[in-house]
Amino acid sequence: MATLFLMVFVTELVSWIGQSVLLEFFYALYLRIFYGSTVARQRQLKSDILLNKKELLQTSAQDQFAKWAKLRRSVDKGLADLEKLNNELSSARTAFSLKFKTALWVMTTGLQFVIGWWYRKAAVFYLPPGWLGPLTWWLAFPFAPAGSVSCGMWQMACRRVIKVGERVAKELVVPSGGSTAGQVPTEQERKEKEEAGKTE
Rank of each mutant, 00 (worst) to 15 (best):
F113R: 07
D63Q: 11
S91K: 13
A181C: 11
S20T: 15
W16A: 12
L135Q: 11
V173T: 14
A196Y: 05
D76V: 10
L31K: 13
S60N: 15
K163L: 14
F141N: 00
P185G: 14
V149Y: 00
E187N: 07
R190S: 09
Q155A: 08
K67S: 12
T11Y: 05
V39S: 02
E195G: 01
T59K: 05
G165L: 03
A103F: 06
Y27H: 14
L31Q: 10
V8S: 13
F143A: 04
L29T: 07
E88V: 03
A66D: 15
G197W: 03
L79N: 14
A181S: 15
F65L: 07
Q62P: 00
S60Q: 08
D48I: 10
G130L: 06
S15E: 15
V184S: 13
T59H: 06
Q155V: 03
L98M: 08
L132R: 09
L22Y: 08
L132K: 04
F141M: 02
I162L: 04
M153G: 00
F5C: 13
L56F: 12
A144I: 07
F143Q: 06
L22R: 04
G152E: 02
G177C: 06
S47M: 09
A146S: 13
Y27C: 09
G36R: 08
C151T: 06
K198T: 06
L6A: 11
L79S: 12
R160T: 02
V168Q: 03
G182R: 01
V10N: 02
R93Y: 14
P134R: 07
L172M: 05
K77G: 06
R120L: 00
V14P: 01
W117G: 01
T102W: 12
A169K: 03
L79E: 15
L50H: 09
F113G: 00
L13N: 06
L71Y: 07
I33Y: 09
L6K: 12
L111P: 06
F100T: 08
A80H: 09
S91V: 06
G147N: 05
I17E: 04
S97N: 02
E171I: 08
A123D: 00
I115S: 01
G133V: 07
A66Q: 13
L31A: 04
K121S: 12
P134T: 03
I49D: 12
E171K: 14
A28F: 07
K53S: 06
A157E: 08
P128R: 01
K77A: 11
S47G: 06
S37W: 08
N87S: 13
V75S: 10
L127K: 02
L85W: 01
V184W: 09
I33L: 13
I115M: 01
V184L: 15
G18P: 09
T102K: 06
K67L: 11
T186M: 07
F5H: 14
P129G: 01
A122Y: 03
Q183L: 15
G182A: 01
E171R: 14
E192I: 12
A80I: 10
K46Y: 08
G165P: 03
F9I: 01
F5Q: 09
